[in-house]
Simulated assay, not measured.
Amino acid sequence: MDPVRGIFFDEDDARAAVARLVAGGYGARAERERLSGEDDDEGHPWAVLTDAPEPVLELLVDEYDGWLDAGDDPPAVPPIELPTEPRKIKGHFGG
C-alpha cells in the first residue's frame, strides 16, 4: 500500500504530526516538499508520509491547517464502445 501524504506549512506542525502518528503505532516521517519553480528553501512546505489510514492523517492536517494529498488519480473508467460502421438513416432527403 502506498503511503498517505499530508502537507504542512510549518516544520514544527509536521514534526508534531509525525510524533503523534508514531505514538499511535504507525510508521511516519517528515520531508521537505520541493515545489517546482520555488527557489526559496524556506518557502517549501513539509510532507508527512505515513502508513496510517487516511482518516487518521486527515484529522491531523485539519488540526494543523495542512491538506491531505490524496493522489487525485481519477477512477478507472472503461472505454466507450464506438460503432464500427456508419449508421443507416431511414428515409430520404430532398424533394
Rank of each mutant, 00 (worst) to 15 (best):
M1I: 07
P3M: 04
P3F: 02
V4N: 04
R5G: 06
R5E: 11
G6W: 08
G6T: 10
I7K: 00
F9R: 13
E11L: 09
D13G: 01
D13E: 10
A14Y: 07
A14Q: 03
V18T: 06
V18G: 02
V18Y: 04
V18L: 04
A19W: 08
L21M: 09
L21S: 04
A23N: 04
A23G: 02
G24S: 10
Y26P: 03
G27L: 04
G27W: 02
A28R: 00
A28F: 00
A30T: 02
A30W: 00
A30K: 05
E31M: 14
R32C: 08
R34L: 15
R34T: 13
L35K: 15
G37I: 05
E38T: 11
D39A: 04
D39Q: 06
D39L: 06
D40E: 15
D41A: 10
D41C: 09
D41P: 15
E42M: 12
E42Q: 14
H44A: 03
W46T: 05
W46H: 06
V48Q: 00
L49N: 08
T50Q: 01
T50D: 03
P53Q: 06
P53T: 05
P53I: 03
P55V: 08
V56P: 00
L57P: 00
E58K: 07
L59K: 13
V61P: 01
E63M: 10
E63Y: 13
E63H: 13
E63D: 13
Y64T: 03
D65K: 12
D65S: 11
G66Y: 00
L68S: 09
D69L: 10
D69G: 13
D69I: 12
D69V: 09
A70S: 14
G71K: 07
G71E: 05
G71M: 08
G71N: 09
D72K: 12
D72S: 14
P75A: 13
V77W: 06
V77F: 05
P79T: 11
P79R: 12
L82S: 08
P83K: 10
P83Q: 11
T84A: 15
E85V: 08
P86S: 05
K88I: 11
I89C: 11
G91R: 10
G91Y: 10
H92K: 15
F93I: 15
F93T: 15
G94I: 00
G95F: 12
G95N: 15
G95C: 11
